[in-house]
């Protein structure tokens, strides 16, 4: 039958799908390195994207070499921040989420952390910095580590 997986390694087929899409961020391997989000910049118009992509939304050029990979700024400003009291599996409620505007003109969705966070603190314009931390637990109870923004 077309499309059937004829691989003998049936055990491998039972492993869960990778939880996170690869290529979203780089976690530091030593204390000298800093984490960063991986984006793309269009060489034609300069627009920056997150996550990285093949085609610029505006120029839609067919030559993929017009897009280059870039590291995004660590710090940005909160556009929207709010607490939610209902969540997908693996997240502990209540928790804060929001959109962060980075200087490159990119808006990133992320969980928000910080000291004494409240709906009142999460106002537009607050500075926030990207960190790498546990964001939730997977179905087996393992920590999933990815990016978050810390409200300063």
């Amino acid at each position: 039958m077309a499309g059937q997986d004829t691989s003998k390694d049936t055990k491998k087929g039972k492993e869960p799908l990778p939880f996170l899409r690869p290529g979203l961020f780089v976690a530091p391997l030593s204390s000298e390195e800093t984490p960063h989000l991986i984006g793309s910049r269009c060489k034609l118009c300069g627009r920056v994207f997150f996550p990285k992509r093949t085609v610029c939304f505006d120029c839609k050029h067919l030559d993929t070499s017009t897009m280059e990979e870039v590291h995004l700024s660590l710090k940005g400003k909160l556009h929207t921040g709010l607490f939610v009291h209902a969540a997908p599996e693996g997240f502990k409620t209540p928790y804060a989420i929001g959109f962060i505007d980075l200087p490159e003109g990119v808006r990133v969705f992320s969980q928000l952390v910080g000291e004494n966070l409240s709906d009142e603190v999460l106002t537009a314009g607050r500075e926030a910095e990207m960190i790498i931390e546990k964001i939730r637990e997977d179905e087996a109870g393992n920590d999933v580590v990815a990016y978050k923004f810390k409200v300063i």
Partner: peptide, 12 residues
């Protein structure tokens, strides 16, 4: 990829 697994939902 970049919304649901990061904690985003309709609600937010």
């Amino acid at each position: 990829d970049v919304e649901g697994r990061m904690g985003f939902s309709f609600l937010g």
